Structures are given as structure tokens and as C-alpha cells.
Simulated scan of single mutants.
Amino acid sequence: MQALLAQWTEWGAELARLPFSAALRGSAWAYPAVEIVHLAGMALLFGSIVVVDMRLAGLGRQLPVTLLLRHALPFSVAAFVAVVGSGALLFLAHADELAGNRAFLVKLCLIALALANVVWFHTGPYRSLRDAQRGWDVGTAPPAGARISAIVSLVVWSLVICAGRLIAYV
């Protein structure tokens, strides 16, 4: 594990030496603009996830799940793409520092866990929603698997935000 971490840190140092990375760090506008995209994307991602997860957890039963998902998922996907793209640029600018940052590494692990939860939801509980005649209609509680996935999602994405904020202090 130590050898892997050392290789990862060395790779981060190489990335930070790239001319593009130095230009991003040195620009008065580029790095702050990328950071704004990252924060705005995270706000949209988390906001859309919270709305859906609260319904899946059993709240807001007056909203039809299928309609809510149809409207929220495109926003979640677009925001995730913006967050990943801007996050990659932010990493490039400071790869030498971030590669060994424990909070950053925890954040990456939490994102992987959150994505695994998304895959599990879409291949499990969500499939039953798509296959059902009427879906999870107004007034209906989603199945236990969907509720558990929603709670896991809320907790893990909240921890992603916390880990991201802790990067500056660890």
C-alpha cells in the first residue's frame, strides 16, 4: 500500500509540473473560474440528489417518483459531468499537494461509493420502477431497497462535501 501511495504521489508531482497545470495555477482568472464551476456544479448535483432521495426515502409522497426522476436525473448527470471535469482541472493544478492529501483520497473513495450506490439503485430498485405497470405512484412509499439507497446516497454525498472542504485543512 505504501508503494502504491508513493507512486500516486510521484505521479501527482509529474502532473503538477505540466505547463498546463502551471498555467492554470498562475492565471488570475482560470483557477477561480474552474473552482466556481466546481462549486456551482456540486450545488446543482447535491440539490437534485436531495430532492430525489427525500422522495425515495418516503417524504413528499404527493410527488410521482417517475415524473420527479424524469426531471431531476438530467440535471444530476449534467452537474456530475461539470463537477468531474472541473475537479480534474483543479486536481491538475495542485496534483503534487492533493495526491498525498488524506481528505482528498477519502473524497475519491466516497465518490466511488456513491457511484456504486447509483449503479446498484439503477440496476435494482429503479428497474422494478421501470418494469412496474404504474410505478411508485402518488401516496406510495418506494420499496425498502430504494429507501435504503436514498439514505446511503444522502449520507455519502454529504460526506463527499465535507471531505472536499477538509482538503484545505489536512
Rank of each mutant, 00 (worst) to 15 (best):
M1T: 12
L5G: 11
L5A: 14
Q7A: 12
Q7F: 05
T9M: 10
T9E: 15
T9F: 10
E10K: 03
E10D: 15
W11D: 15
A13W: 09
A13K: 09
A13G: 12
L15R: 06
L15G: 10
A16Q: 14
R17P: 13
R17D: 15
L18C: 08
L18R: 09
A22D: 15
A23S: 14
A23Q: 14
A23E: 15
L24A: 08
G26H: 07
G26Y: 06
G26A: 06
A28Q: 13
A28Y: 11
W29I: 11
W29T: 12
W29E: 15
A30E: 15
P32V: 06
P32A: 06
E35T: 08
L39Y: 11
A40N: 09
G41V: 03
M42Y: 04
M42H: 04
F46L: 12
S48Q: 04
I49N: 03
I49M: 07
V51Q: 09
V51K: 02
D53I: 00
R55C: 01
L56Y: 03
L56Q: 07
G58Y: 03
G58F: 01
G58Q: 09
G60R: 02
R61D: 15
L63F: 08
V65E: 09
T66C: 00
A72M: 11
L73H: 05
P74W: 01
F75R: 07
S76A: 12
S76L: 10
S76C: 13
A78V: 09
A79Q: 04
F80P: 09
V81W: 13
V81A: 11
V81T: 14
A82F: 07
V83I: 10
V84E: 15
G85S: 13
G85E: 14
A88F: 06
L90D: 14
L92R: 08
L92C: 11
A93C: 11
H94Y: 08
A95G: 13
A95D: 14
D96L: 02
D96I: 01
E97Y: 07
E97A: 04
E97I: 03
L98W: 05
G100K: 01
N101Q: 10
N101G: 04
R102F: 08
F104N: 09
K107R: 06
K107A: 05
L108F: 01
L110F: 02
L110V: 08
L113F: 06
L115G: 08
A116T: 10
A116G: 13
N117C: 07
N117T: 04
W120C: 00
W120G: 00
F121E: 14
G124Q: 12
P125L: 00
Y126G: 00
Y126I: 00
R127H: 07
S128F: 01
S128K: 04
L129I: 06
R130Q: 12
R130C: 01
Q133R: 03
G135F: 00
D137G: 05
G139V: 08
G139R: 05
T140E: 15
A141R: 12
A141Y: 12
P143D: 15
P143N: 10
G145H: 07
I148D: 13
I148H: 07
S149P: 13
I151Y: 01
S153V: 01
L154Y: 03
V156R: 00
S158I: 09
L159S: 06
I167M: 11
I167K: 00
A168H: 08
A168D: 15
